[in-house]
Nucleic acid binder design. Structure first.
Length: 451
RNA sequence: CGGGGUGUAGCGCAGUUAGGUAGCGCAUCUGCUUUGGGAGCAGAGGGUCGCUGGUUCAAAUCCAGUCACCCCGACCA
């Protein structure tokens, strides 16, 4: 069953929940994900690029975190926690107090000591392990955390997609050799693919490697969506690349070819006008926009050299430790999922990250109806299904509309009309499919739908 | 930071051009009716018109300053 880690035993009553839904779209929102997360009561804006996550939104965050946690644990990364408040001295060591620029959120304490709010944690973790890691025998290993990050964006926008405060998982691996790093880099990348799948994302792994010898190796995980800020090209064979990187590579090749043939003149083809062809399989490439939800990166010795973090090899020679970094945007991927899964009525949560799996919609307050709804919800809950019961004193239309807006994967309508025939109505949010099921079989039927 | 725009009730908006003491829809509260896709009728409550200063007998409206927020661009998980 999906999300087996959240074992529910008691149905949650919506009459006592907190999910203020809005009939009208707040004027501040443009994107579907932004509008819907506000309208459906998942979050509220506190300041530009700063959001409060309400119970429904926080619950989805925790589900995403749990998926990420399980996949990280599965590749032997160990969860830890680093401070958000970081002293300037560490950032001076890496040189980034100057290099990071105005995006670094800076502040000072009452004694005028300078700090920043971490946008990422390479400095902290590098300094941390420098004190304890000295030998090749202690390598490799990987540490990660899920934490709030701060970036003073020039222009925060699109709700959770580009905030100044956001949740990110950041993992850091440490190696003795480039081979060890490359091997683990692929292990992390594979884990990222599984995270995407479990979140129900439509995604592509985009090679952002420039191809230059000695260049950095990095791949971005893109959730395909028109609202995305990245332009990518991709192919059915699995090839995908950032459009600019791709065009750059194509130009380089063309330039090299032109040089080989000693031809003067047009050495840079107009790649925009040319129908692009997959360099791997030769098929025509497709174009799309993507939301970057994760990135894996072979950093190498950059920080360890800057901060003097070395290990001693078998022959007693010191080398800088080689690092890999792996970031996953928790809140951003939440918004990306909504961006991919919605319709006119609201959100359509993939079961794996839905705030709850089933909503039992009780129509009216007739005693027999209430008893049947309670019994069904209780049976589902005791079977481990995450279930809410809409026991609010609202009219049916309000409940139906809220249910579609919030996007519960499965809705079960319990009303007097159905009970008279001994049935309840089961609706699947994703397909809109509705069918009547005998009361006695409803719980098993719903569990089968979720498995 | 450049360009464009918006701040009036919890939300969405009108009113600003031609100054005269604030209005509409939704939401909220009360009552009655209603109850399978955001109900109807009747009544009620709720606003320092972003903030500061100025002009004027009089400012939501005119002038100056300032803050916040949104969109396009440069930057970025």
């Amino acid at each position: 069953m999906a999300a087996a880690t959240h074992t529910a035993t008691t149905p949650v009553r919506l009459s006592e929940y907190y999910f203020p839904t809005l009939k009208e779209t707040p004027a501040e929102a443009e994107l579907a994900s932004h509008k819907l997360l506000l309208r459906a009561g998942f979050m509220r804006k506190t300041a530009a690029g700063v959001y409060t996550l309400l119970p429904l939104g926080w619950r989805v965050v925790r589900k995403i975190e749990q998926i990420v946690r399980e996949e990280m644990d599965a590749v032997d990364a160990r969860e830890m926690r680093m401070p958000i408040l970081q002293p300037r001295e560490l950032w001076d060591e890496s040189g980034r107090w100057n290099d990071y620029g105005p995006e670094l959120m800076r502040l000072h304490d009452r004694h005028e000591r300078e700090f920043c709010l971490g946008p990422t944690h390479e400095e902290i973790i590098t300094a941390l392990i420098a004190a304890d890691i000295h030998s090749y025998r202690q390598l490799p290993f990987c540490l990660y955390q899920m934490n709030t990050k701060f970036r003073d964006e020039i222009r925060p926008r699109f709700g959770l997609l580009r905030g100044r405060e956001f949740l990110m998982k950041d993992a850091y691996s440490f190696h003795a050799t480039p081979e060890s790093l490359s091997e683990y880099y692929e292990v992390q990348a594979a884990a990222y693919g599984r995270i995407c799948d479990r979140m129900g994302l439509i995604w592509r792994r985009v090679e952002a490697d420039s191809g230059q010898i000695g260049g950095k190796v990095t791949a971005e995980f893109m959730a395909l969506a028109d609202a995305g800020e990245s332009d990518i090209v991709y192919c059915d064979c699995g090839f995908a690349a950032d459009i600019e990187v791709f065009q750059g590579d194509q130009s380089d090749e063309a330039r090299a070819a032109a040089a080989d043939e000693k031809q003067a003149g047009e050495c840079v083809p107009d790649v925009d006008a040319t129908p692009a062809v997959c360099p791997t399989c030769g098929q025509a490439l497709q174009r799309a926009r993507g939301i970057e939800v994760g990135q894996v990166f072979e950093v190498g010795p950059k920080y360890s050299q800057a901060m003097g973090v070395n290990y001693t090899d078998e022959s007693g020679v010191e080398h800088p430790i080689i690092m890999g970094c792996y970031g996953w945007g928790i809140t951003r991927s939440l918004a990306a999922a909504v961006e991919q899964h919605n319709d006119e009525a609201g959100i359509i949560w993939p079961v794996g990250i839905a705030p709850y799996e089933v909503c039992v919609i009780r129509l009216g307050d007739d005693e027999a109806v209430a008893a049947a709804a309670d019994a069904l919800a209780a049976e589902l809950a005791s079977a481990g299904v995450e279930v809410v019961i809409d026991d609010r004193a609202e009219r049916p239309g309000v409940k139906f509309n809220d249910a579609d807006l919030i996007g519960w994967p499965v809705q079960v309508v319990v009303g007097a009309r159905g009970l008279a025939a001994g049935t309840v109505e089961v609706k699947l949010r994703a397909t809109g499919d509705k069918h009547d099921v005998a009361c006695a079989e409803s719980a098993t039927h719903i569990q089968a739908l979720l498995s």
